[in-house]
Every structure is written in structure tokens, then in C-alpha cells.
Design a protein around this nucleic acid. Structure first.
Lengths: 133, 133
DNA sequence: GTAGAAGGTGACATTAATGTCAGATTCAAG
DNA sequence: CTTGAATCTGACATTAATGTCACCTTCTAC
């Protein structure tokens, strides 16, 4: 097996994490401050993220895109088995999440209708102004 | 036929429009200033929206929810046959809209994945803490 | 050890739609 | 006319993630 020596974990520094996730260093530091990410520190104070943070950051971005605020995400993450979470959502949190879910449903509807609008306008323009006559 | 007298259009004031669309008066005034809505004015300066604004406002909200900014929406609306638009999108606008469309596609993906996350966490909580044992 | 790349912290700015408030004016019904 | 509801304008605030900059420290390869 590869990586059988020591703890078998190659820490990731913030620059590499930013590059691999497409999320700015600025945002990664913000995520850490909001409790969405945990990082070890070198003796000199540089952050060392675990490998798993790559997927985690991507998931966090998706949740941000879905309109959740950092506080909600911070509550949600510990309940996700996917990222080693073992917590169970409290009843209050479940209520919150159900509301978020409804909002997401509505937003998906808005997005689908808006996409249709764009498609119609684009198609109409291509009909009126064909680039390949 | 109903409404055969005169111009046959009952104008809508801002309060009623707000109530019927769920959009605040503040936002409706903002939409007008951004060129998304056009309103006649009474002698005293009060806005009189045409009936069609009800659907139009709802569509505008959907487009905002889809992440378009007011400037893009202002360009888009005149190209929508649905709302009496007769314009054809310029090539530059089509390019813009295609970019928006990609973004919307990506966002739909994010929303679907995020919704799944919420469903999992909610389901897990309901399994661990059943309200009806 | 040294130079340059990478990282740390903190502060200030931004964006864009929306909320809110105050004071003045208009509208509609008595 | 009068009165109360509705509307107008303009200004200021907010939100929340992210950008940017300045200045300093740490890391890494030579």
C-alpha cells in the first residue's frame, strides 16, 4: 500500500487548496474563521489542511450556491456522514433545513423557468440572425 | 366582451401590485428606475402600472433568483415575445446570455446536490429521532 | 544564510437588491 | 372640505461573501 509510513497524510497548504478547488485563499481563510474548515498549523503559523478538505470545500461552495449562509453550513457539516460527521441534527435544525429545502425547490423552479427564457431568446436570435446561412 | 369601454385597461397601483406579486413596493420602484417596468403617472405623480406587470414582475423575480443582474434583465425583457417584446438579441447579448445559461446550469447542479445533502441529513435525523414511534 | 515564493493578519471596499424611515403630497370617500 | 389611507422622494443602512492592499513572517531551494 502507498502511504503506509507514519500517519499517511500529506497536508495541503492554502495555496494548493485554493488551486485545487477554485476557491480563493481569502475565502478559505474566511471559511476557517466561520468554523467550516479546520486546519493544523505549522510551528510558524501556516495552515495545513487535511486532504479531505478538497472535497469539503467543494461541497461548501455548493451549499453557498444553494443560498445557505455560513452559520447554517457550519451546523450542517457535522451531521454529514460523508465528511466524517457523526452528529445528528436537532429538531430545530431539521426545521431550519426543511425551510431551506423548500427554498431550494422554489429556486430550482425559478432557474428552470429562467433557463427556458434564455433558451427562447437565444433561439429566436439564432433564427433571425443565423451565423451559418 | 368585458372592458370594451375606452382603452379597456384597469391600471394597477403600486400597493396592489406589491400585494399581488409578493414583491415590496420598494423593489417595484427600484425595478422602474432600472428600466424593468414602465408605469404611467397620474396627474399627482402616482404610478399606474398596466395589468400585464403582474406576470412581468413575477418573471423578473425569477430572473433575479437565477442570478441575473438588473442590467441583464433590462436587456433581456425587450426580447421576450411573452411580454410584448419585439426586439432580437444582438450577438453580444446572445453571448452574454449563453454565459448566464451555463452559470444557471451549474447552479442547478449545485442546488440538486445540496438538496440531496439536506435530504440525507433530515432523513438521518428522522431515523435517529422518530417523532412517531 | 539568503533570496524569492508563499503565507499570515488586519483593514477597508464592494456589490446589489432590499429594508427602513422621515417628511411631504395625493387620492378617495365621507 | 376634511380626514385617513396610500403614495412619492430621498437618504441611509444592511447583508455576506469576496476582492484587494499593505506590511510582516515563514518556508524552501540554492
Amino acid at each position: 500500500m502507498a502511504g503506509a509510513e507514519g500517519d499517511g497524510e500529506e497536508p495541503v497548504r492554502i495555496g494548493e487548496l485554493a488551486r485545487r478547488t477554485g476557491v480563493s485563499e481569502r475565502s478559505l481563510r474566511y471559511y476557517e474563521k466561520q468554523g467550516l474548515l479546520a486546519a493544523e498549523r505549522t510551528a510558524g503559523g501556516h495552515r495545513e489542511f487535511p486532504e479531505a478538505c478538497v472535497d469539503r470545500v467543494i461541497r461548501i461552495q455548493e451549499l453557498f450556491a444553494a443560498g445557505l449562509c455560513s452559520a447554517k453550513i457550519a451546523q450542517l457539516l457535522p451531521c454529514m456522514r460523508e465528511y466524517g460527521g457523526s452528529a445528528t441534527a436537532s429538531a430545530a435544525l431539521v426545521d431550519d433545513l426543511a425551510v431551506e429545502r423548500s427554498r431550494i425547490d422554489a429556486m430550482i423552479g425559478d432557474l428552470l423557468r429562467s433557463r427556458e427564457v434564455l433558451d427562447e431568446v437565444i433561439a429566436e436570435a439564432r433564427t433571425d440572425t443565423p451565423s451559418t446561412p
